[in-house]
Design a protein around this nucleic acid. Structure first.
Length: 466
DNA sequence: TGAAATGTTGGGGCG
DNA sequence: ACGCCCCAACATTTC
């Protein structure tokens, strides 16, 4: 009898720790072939990103290296998933394809096609948990049986879900000798260099585990009090690694310390699960979750939009944040709320514009989280709250969450010498002071592109009439 | 010195 | 899931 071969189809699960699909394949087969199918269309589509493509290549490199260390490898194929998997399965005379379930509408559709087509060819196609901390998150429901729309009740139910055991990384991958593995794509193939951020984190499970360790060894203890301070390194910075599956949330849960900080962070992880849940139970991310806002009239002023994207709104907190995004491919969570509120509430611009811009730059750009959070800050999504509760004053937010001005000064050099008391509203400085501190408003730094007070009144009316 | 100007605090209301 | 604004009442500063 010939050897039994199982293909492990890697996607957004680029790790070897706590990887149920990989481990089960190794237990069930004589030969295991990990493969990644690089789909050029996905790399250049509407929500693609040079930053993320580069990060992905680094993840693939790292995964391949880890697999090579235990006798395996990562086969790279380019093209459409159905035909590449079909061809590889034929070549290997494989019995089955295993993969980690993914939940975006795009992934679900693709995976359904793969399952249909390969099942027809007589292959077993089997999906595994691993993306989220809980399996079958979509089964969670309120007492009346309807899906949760509010975070806190979801969170309470989610905490109660029984978790699976973490699986150890494999010691050996029985990889067929002599199989052609294919080269990793060159960076130029997957990125346009003018869209690359200069100061980004590196992809890969190794880098991910380092970032996690750094966080667990320090900042997590004070996460509950420090997580909103934009200048501090008080957050985990693991979001890109979670997006690409370099880390398993389930594994993270098992190594969390017992502290208020850790519990507060765990709650943040639950938000990630919640937004994946929402996308599963309401798979229409292009639509506002709340029906009443689906016909909202947004303003489309391209000059205001460009000023927002470029970090030239005249509001220091907004500008610092938008510049951090382009510089690092990442933005502090508090800053995301501030710029999200500013775009949708102060500028009255469609949240989808913000969603798309974030997807272009963020290393952690993720359909579920990004869409969910944009709908949240635009007050059109799940977890509803009155508009005014998510209508932030960009000046007082700066006062509160960047009290020393370190964040603003780090990303907005024009304001370096402006003293703290003028750092929220530099346009209020006298002309003498503007000269003295080397920051003339309208010349060195823009005057505010909108008046917050007027914008606030206007946007409350806009939502009221919707 | 008093009165006006300016600053601070707290509660209620806001779709 | 993590506010804001206004206004009244009270406190302090300024001339």
């Amino acid at each position: 009898m010939s050897k039994q071969t199982i293909i492990v189809w890697f996607r957004a699960d680029l790790r070897i720790h706590d990887h149920p699909a990989l481990v089960t394949a190794i237990a069930n087969a004589d030969q295991v072939v990990p493969v990644f199918v690089l789909d050029k269309n996905a790399l250049t589509g509407r929500f693609s990103s040079a930053n993320r493509n580069r990060f992905l290549v680094e993840c693939l490199e790292d995964t391949r290296k880890s697999l090579q260390n235990i006798g395996g490898d990562l086969v790279i194929r380019q093209g459409d998933a159905v035909s590449e998997l079909k061809a590889l399965a034929k070549e290997l005379d494989a019995e089955a394809v295993y993969y980690t379930a993914d939940y975006t509408p795009y992934a679900l559709q693709r995976d359904r096609q793969v399952e249909d087509q390969l099942t027809k060819e007589g292959l077993e196609v089997r999906s595994f948990g691993g993306k989220l901390a809980v399996a079958s998150v979509q089964k969670l429901a309120t007492k009346s049986g309807s899906p949760f729309k509010v975070f806190t009740p979801f969170y309470k139910a989610w905490l109660q879900v029984k978790r699976r055991d973490v699986v150890d990384p494999p010691k050996k991958v029985p990889f067929p000798p002599g199989l052609k593995v294919g080269r990793l794509p060159a960076l130029d193939d997957v990125t346009q260099s003018d869209m690359l951020s200069p100061d980004v984190a590196n992809g890969g499970e190794s880098a991910a585990r380092k970032a996690l360790t750094n966080f667990l060894d320090g900042p997590i203890t004070y996460y509950d009090s420090d997580n909103n301070d934009m200048a501090k390194n008080g957050t985990s910075r693991v979001s890109p690694y979670l997006h690409f599956g370099c880390l398993s949330v389930r594994e993270i849960e098992t190594v969390l310390p017992d502290s208020n900080g850790a519990r507060a962070w765990h709650r943040q992880l639950a938000w990630r699960e919640f937004y994946h849940y929402v996308l599963l139970t309401f798979p229409h991310p292009q639509q506002e979750f709340q029906e009443r806002y689906r016909d909202m009239q947004w303003d489309s002023d391209s000059q205001l939009l460009e000023a927002w994207k470029d970090g030239k709104t005249g509001y220091p907190a907004v500008d610092a944040a938008m510049r951090q995004l382009k510089q690092e491919g990442w933005m502090h969570n508090r800053a995301r709320l501030i710029v999200g509120s500013f775009l949708t509430k102060d500028l009255g611009i469609d949240w989808r514009e913000g969603e798309a811009h974030f997807m272009q730059w963020l290393l952690d750009g993720d359909m579920a989280n990004n869409n969910g959070n944009w709908q949240w800050i635009a007050s059109v999504g799940v977890d509803p709250a009155p508009v005014f509760r998510r209508l932030y004053n960009p000046s007082s937010q700066r006062d509160k969450y960047d009290p020393n001005g370190d964040y603003v000064r780090r990303y907005v050099p024009e304001l370096t010498r402006v003293p703290d008391e003028h750092l929220s509203e530099p346009w209020r400085m006298s002309e003498d002071k503007q000269k003295k501190y080397g920051c003339e408003i309208g010349k060195d730094y823009p005057s505010p592109i909108v008046d917050h007070k007027l914008a606030r009144q206007a946007v409350l009316e806009r939502y009221r009439s919707a």
